[in-house]
Computed example of a mutant assay.
Amino acid sequence: MQSSALFATIGTRGSPLALAQAHLVRSLLAKAHGVSEELIGIRVLSTGGDRSQAENTTLSDIGGKGVFTKEIDDALLAGEIDLGVHSSKDVATGLPQGITLAAFLEREDVRDAFLSVSVPSLDHLPQGARFGTSSIRRAAQALRLRPDLVIVPFRGNVHTRIQKLVDGVADATLLAMAGLNRLGEAHRVTSILEPDHFMPAPAQGAIGLAIRTGDDRLAQLIAPLNHAETFGKITAERAMLAVLDGSCRTPVGALTSLADGVYTLKGEILSLDGQTTFKAEGQDTDPQRLGETVGQSLVAKAGAEWFAQWQN
Rank of each mutant, 00 (worst) to 15 (best):
L39D: 10
S121R: 03
N312W: 14
A30P: 06
R51P: 01
G274M: 08
T213S: 12
L83F: 13
T69D: 05
D196V: 11
T12H: 11
L183E: 13
L101I: 14
A140R: 07
G205S: 08
A92Q: 11
F131R: 05
Y263R: 04
R144T: 05
T256N: 02
V110A: 04
A103S: 05
I62K: 07
T250K: 02
G79N: 00
T230W: 01
R161S: 08
L218T: 02
A302I: 10
L76N: 02
S36E: 12
E268M: 09
H33S: 06
K266T: 09
F114M: 08
S27G: 08
M199Y: 14
H23G: 00
L24C: 06
S36Y: 02
V44F: 13
E108F: 04
R107V: 02
A242S: 15
G132I: 03
S257P: 08
A242F: 03
A75N: 08
G98Y: 14
E281S: 09
V119P: 00
R43V: 02
P202F: 06
I211D: 07
Q53H: 15
A302C: 11
L95R: 09
V150I: 13
A178L: 06
D215A: 13
E71A: 07
V166H: 11
L45D: 12
V119T: 01
H33A: 01
T256K: 00
R289Q: 14
T190Y: 14
A206Y: 13
T160P: 02
A129F: 14
G84E: 01
G253C: 07
D61H: 12
V67K: 13
R111I: 06
E37G: 04
L209D: 06
G79A: 03
E37Q: 14
R130Q: 07
L145H: 12
R146G: 06
I269D: 05
R107Y: 01
A210D: 10
G34W: 03
R161Q: 13
L59P: 11
G128S: 05
S118Y: 04
M240I: 06
V150P: 01
R289P: 03
Y263Q: 01
V25W: 03
L17Q: 04
V262Q: 12
A223R: 11
L24E: 15
T160F: 07
D74E: 13
